[in-house]
Simulated assay, not measured.
Amino acid sequence: MLHPLPRSHRGPVVTIVIGVGNDFRRDDGAGPAVVEALRGRVAATLAVTDGEPARLITLWAGADLAIVVDAVRAEPPVPGRIHDLGAETAALARRPVTGHSLGLGDAVALGLAVGQMPVRLRVLAIEGHDFGLGRGLTPRVAAAVITVADRIAASLPSAMKESHPS
């Protein structure tokens, strides 16, 4: 069995933020909206996908930290409520919670089975209200997008290099 090299021997930390969703399904666009809100703010790779497990695995494979942001349905719904989950909890979500045909739990299960998981997986799920056709987030989900983007930005290195006076 191969063991990962200690952090000091592997080079820079690789971080990716993945927004899952569809901008043409109202609140399902929350994940891509968070990624857009992070552009220029964090030193991380930013990506958007439809949530298909093979695409997720390809994006997060080899990362030290993968942060996945997705909109979810909940019963009873509380639009805009944010859930901060780890890989263990995400793996339990074997049935789709959004409009995607397969859920994030399927991607985690498959990634574990083929040894293609990031060192650490964090999932930020935003409860949506309207997943119908159309563009634009509902007000509570739009507010949650800002909160999630700020939370991620605060936890990652800034994209801006610090300036030092000469």
Rank of each mutant, 00 (worst) to 15 (best):
M1I: 08
H3M: 07
P4A: 09
P4T: 02
P4Y: 00
P6S: 13
P6R: 12
R7L: 05
S8K: 04
R10M: 07
I18D: 09
V20T: 09
D23H: 04
F24L: 15
R26T: 13
D27I: 10
D28G: 03
V34N: 06
V34Q: 08
V35D: 14
A37G: 08
L38A: 08
R39V: 11
R41N: 12
A43T: 06
A44V: 12
T45D: 15
L46S: 11
L46D: 09
A47L: 08
T49E: 12
D50H: 13
G51N: 13
E52C: 03
L56A: 04
W60N: 01
A61N: 08
G62P: 05
D64I: 04
L65D: 04
V68W: 08
V68I: 15
V69S: 07
V69W: 13
V69N: 05
D70R: 11
A71K: 08
A71H: 11
V72I: 15
R73V: 11
R73I: 01
A74P: 00
A74F: 09
P76T: 02
V78R: 15
P79F: 02
G80C: 05
R81N: 06
H83E: 08
D84A: 12
E88T: 09
E88V: 07
A90V: 10
A90T: 14
A91S: 02
L92H: 09
L92Y: 02
A93C: 05
A93Q: 14
R95I: 07
G99E: 13
L102H: 12
L102K: 05
L104Q: 10
G105V: 00
A107V: 05
V108G: 07
G111P: 01
L112R: 15
V114D: 05
V114P: 00
V114G: 00
G115E: 11
G115H: 06
Q116Y: 00
M117T: 13
L124M: 14
I126Q: 05
I126R: 02
H129A: 15
F131S: 12
G134T: 13
R135K: 12
L137C: 08
R140T: 04
V141L: 08
A142C: 06
A142I: 07
A142T: 04
A144H: 01
T147N: 05
A149P: 11
A149Q: 10
D150W: 02
D150K: 03
R151C: 00
I152V: 15
A153D: 03
S155I: 04
L156S: 10
K161R: 15
E162T: 14
S163L: 15
H164A: 11
S166M: 05
